[in-house]
Design a protein around this nucleic acid. Structure first.
Lengths: 229, 229
DNA sequence: CGATGCGTTGATAACTTTCAAATTTAGTGG
DNA sequence: CCACTAAATTTGAAAGTTATCAACGCATCG
């Protein structure tokens, strides 16, 4: 499942200087994000490289600069539960324990800003606006997880439609979504099989709600109202 | 769905003096819980009374002294998603926004300690151990929600078994669980129908993993290994 | 151009919901 | 305390949904 390269994760921090993430197009006006850019080191990960693993010490906070990252957990029965997808501008790796409860991998080649948690904590102690951002980030994370629960009690069509709308909300323009993740990633995120995801997408296309390109990673939303229902 | 009595919630705070919750049997050695007992007002709610509602201002934090509380959300399609059950000693109503994102009701007649969030925040500013407890509480809450996600991608038998083990862990002795909530509450918590919950319990009983009493609210775990599998 | 991985489609089986009804339990008034 | 009623729980049968197993198509890349 994982490449053996780059699994040494954090110890590989390069000497690259932090660079502005503004060119990624992600909105980034928050104090926390700004601070991370000043304090962080830039890391690059090839496709499928592990960024951190479950049970490793959670000493760093991460911010996507380019590419996409997935966090996930492997269950006892071998299934994989994808917990979230992180696009440029998104912060991931936030934990409330000493160890990561999830693993993180680059979905596509990714540039990631890596910041020591201890440094951010110290900064939060000095700067109330940073502490406030931490609080808000935590709230968003909790909200995101709760929304996921609401998703998982719905049927396959609703899950896929919600997923498409969420992705459209986050990183697309003009109703066209460029999905960085595979069908398997989507299936593991939605708690469905890859076949069900495919069939549901086909059904939505038949119903004229979406269009799927030949490469299958580009999807055009034709009828948002139909998707929302 | 709700009784019309007591829906005025917080405005009914009585002049009762806070009392020790130690007699509830709940372990309660944390700084946050101690502080709440010193600062809080005791409220009593009859069965099915609303403690707070979605979209109401989240000005208070709550701690169960006796009885049981459920938090839930009503979805667009009319279904109810139960978010959590809170037993004596448990804290609920924690939010990261100005408004509650869930509603809360008493499952059985309940005594609840109610504390102003602003007072707790002020205390957290003075007492680092209280702030630390807030942090830990948040972490536990996030963990609880994430565990719920893992539950929801499993099949009915696994969900019911996990639920029983969770309840046994939390509030029972000697392998006997006294369930304060109805089958419908359980179904809405697990994302199943009441019929599936019943059938699954019957199947577990047939498989000698549990015993269900005549009143149906008392369940004896006969074979934990079988439940865990 | 052939190998390989990803995505799609088909057929069938397994699981869960839905609708209906029977059974049991809890509550209430006489 | 008992009979009656309402509510909760359980069981049955059929329909609907999703998973599983299998095969095929298609694109990418050496």
């Amino acid at each position: 499942m994982h490449l053996s390269t780059h699994t040494d994760g954090i110890r590989r921090i390069s000497t690259d200087r932090p660079v502005s993430a503004s060119r990624t197009g992600a909105v980034d006006a928050d104090a926390l994000g700004q601070s991370m850019q000043l304090m962080g080191a830039m890391m690059t990960y090839p496709r499928d490289a592990e960024i951190f693993g479950e049970n490793e010490p959670a000493d760093y906070l991460y911010k996507v600069v380019s590419g996409t990252v997935r966090t996930y957990k492997i269950l006892n029965d071998g299934r994989r539960q994808v917990s979230g997808f992180y696009l440029p501008g998104d912060i991931f790796g936030l934990e409330f324990t000493d160890e990561h409860t999830l693993s993180a991998e680059a979905i596509s080649d990714a540039k990631v800003l890596v910041v020591k948690r201890s440094a951010l904590n110290a900064l939060a102690g000095r700067d109330a606006s940073v502490a406030q951002q931490f609080f808000a980030l935590t709230g968003r994370e909790l909200h995101r997880v709760q929304d996921r629960i609401l998703l998982l009690i719905k049927n396959a069509r609703e899950r896929v439609a919600s997923f498409l709308l969420e992705m459209a909300e986050r990183g697309s323009e003009n109703n066209t979504i460029e999905l960085p993740m595979s069908r398997q990633d989507i299936a593991d995120y939605l708690g469905l099989t890859i076949e069900t995801v495919c069939r549901t997408l086909s059904a939505l296309e038949t119903a004229s709600a979406i269009e799927v390109s030949a490469s299958s990673r580009r999807i055009v939303l034709r009828n948002r109202a139909a998707l929302a229902a």
